[in-house]
């Protein structure tokens, strides 16, 4: 019970932050439109940005007045989430340097470790990593040689 109350206040704080963020996005958009030379390119972003500021503002205020949201990140291991995301982003930065396959392998390995909740055994070790290698090779070949995508 105490735990859920905690996650409630966290959820409320998060909603406030996200709402505020959207208000800022709207304001930045409005500021950006002032530099456009063509009236046609201003009308739409300005209108939409106003809608965003308004709706996100209302969301912020109602959140503040009635902090009863049950939102939140939910249970789960943070290191797994971070490992997945960080290896994928890392792969993306390394791709032009080391090539597509090695970079893809980093992301694959990250995802594999992050998603592995059971204890590793010799069998799973061999099977999963072997499967990963095959999958990556097949997709790489398919895109590079059959579809002629210039993978780095």
């Amino acid at each position: 019970m105490a735990k859920s109350a905690l996650s409630n206040t966290k959820g409320n704080l998060g909603s406030l932050v996200v709402s505020a963020l959207f208000v800022v996005v709207g304001l930045v958009t409005l500021w950006d439109t002032t530099s456009y030379t063509d009236r046609d390119s201003q009308v739409f972003p300005q209108t939409v940005a106003l809608v965003l500021v308004l709706t996100a503002g209302i969301s912020f205020v109602t959140q503040f007045l009635r902090p009863s949201e049950s939102d939140g990140f939910g249970p789960g291991d943070w290191w797994r989430r971070l490992l997945l995301v960080i290896t994928m982003i890392l792969a993306c930065f390394l791709m032009p340097v080391v090539g597509f396959l090695p970079a893809g392998a980093i992301a694959f390995a990250g995802g594999l470790v992050a998603a592995m909740h059971d204890r590793w055994s010799i069998k799973t070790l061999l099977l999963y990593w072997g499967f990963g290698g095959v999958i990556m090779m097949v997709f790489f070949a398919l895109f590079k040689y059959a579809l002629h995508v210039p993978l780095p």
Binding site: L84, A107, G110, G111, L112, A115, H117, Y128, F131, G132
Partner: peptide, 8 residues
């Protein structure tokens, strides 16, 4: 453990 990295 295989599904996630494959989809990724």
């Amino acid at each position: 453990a295989v599904l996630v990295p494959t989809v990724g």
